[in-house]
Design a protein around this nucleic acid. Structure first.
Lengths: 223, 223
DNA sequence: CGTTTTTTTGAGAGCGGTCAATGATGGTGG
DNA sequence: CCACCATCATTGACCGCTCTCAAAAAAACG
């Protein structure tokens, strides 16, 4: 693995707000793939990269949450994925990004230059395998999302979503970083239906809500 | 690129019906990635690989069409993708297949052993890049599918599907290899809704149908 | 040519979308 | 610290679209 430092200059060429930029350091894309990079912070709803922009970096969530959105021709919005701390994103693209990444909450993101990653992959076939594997995982995750979106009632969609979020946070107590609008655009429902379904699930005793973002799963079977 | 021949013996270990097997020959996964492999033919609705099976091969459609299906817990079926001649599939999996591949029509498929592909990728970083790129393309295709499935009316879903099929066959005259049931499970609709939507599109003048599988696009704007 | 499968068409009901109003939450400035 | 405002979430009433159930028509198959 080569160790060419990414200069902060290079980074500031791409990002106007250099004050949000940490000094260059080693960033772990995965445990087995560490590269020189840097970190940035983004405010809630701030754009991390836009649709059509050239894909110069690969990203890893350090703190907070990130959503991948696509704008449909009729003005609607679809969220194809949420990324939580530890998740890698920006791989799903070719030369230019096919979707837009935004901060769901204030968040911190680690970046490495794509060319640096590709340079390492060209020399280290283990690293190349890691990249392929990561992309493959995301493909499988997208197909899981398809299953949820495919058919199923609103209750099933919301239930699957909550189970998925619980799985990723490793327990039955969930803190949802995203708004109802985000959930709706992720599940192909309206805000109202998501809200109605949540209260319905609570009345059935399947979940308990402390505020609209703190959710405890009770009877997982009924989800 | 190494040239270890895949013995027909190895193949017959995995496939019972060895009569369907062609002799080993060079198979082009892409133009830039050619490997020793063989071809097989499958009857309509025959299983090419099953969910949970170990992913020993990578496939390329030579003739016919292939569908990737997942069975949902409630017995429903979701089709995540259709593959047409030239398309590569079997990449989206890890150690075991996460979905099932079936022949939509009688078809011919070229196979190469996954380990052979990985062996080449380990030595040839161009080949490794090709694999990453192919997987990445499929990820993007899955995300496009998400957009169609996400929301949209039945008319929009069917319209998008027809436009997509037209794009892949390179014209406005489409031959649909798959049944209404397949289309329904791909779009998250019922057979009846697909059928009704098609006749509705024809009445609007958007398409013309010669039988239920020969479709000509007329006014693309209204799709 | 008869049988089976697939597709089309019809009528009715349920679910989620739409529009609209109320209630909660969070951030800002006085 | 509290009042205010903006944003977000919840709830309600109504309508339209798609699913369901059912039957007829068309196509595929031997």
């Amino acid at each position: 693995v080569e160790l060419n430092m990414i200069s902060t200059d290079t980074a500031t060429q791409s990002f106007q707000n250099a004050s949000r930029l940490s000094a260059g350091r080693t960033v772990a894309i995965t445990a087995s793939l560490q590269l020189p990079g840097f970190t940035m912070t983004f405010d809630r709803d701030e754009e991390i990269f836009g649709e059509g922009e050239s894909a110069d970096f690969i990203y890893r969530v350090v703190l907070g949450a990130v959503r991948i959105t696509r704008l449909l021709d009729d003005g609607r919005r679809l969220i194809s994925d949420f990324y939580l701390p530890g998740d890698v994103f920006g791989l799903e693209m070719g030369e230019t990004h096919g979707a837009c990444a935004e901060a769901v909450t204030d968040c911190e993101v680690a970046l490495v230059k794509r060319v640096a990653v590709e340079r390492v992959a060209a020399q280290d076939h283990l690293a190349a395998g890691t990249l392929w594997s990561l992309t493959s995982q995301q493909l499988r995750s997208a197909q899981d999302h398809l299953v949820v979106l495919g058919r199923r009632s609103a209750a099933e969609k919301v239930g699957r979503f909550l189970l998925d979020m619980a799985g990723r946070s490793g327990g039955t107590v969930i803190h949802l970083p995203m708004s109802r609008a985000d959930i709706a655009d992720y599940l192909g429902l309206t805000i109202e239906t998501v809200s109605r379904t949540m209260t319905q699930l609570e009345r059935q005793g399947a979940i308990t809500m402390k505020g609209c973002r703190e959710i405890v799963l009770r009877t997982l079977a009924s989800l």
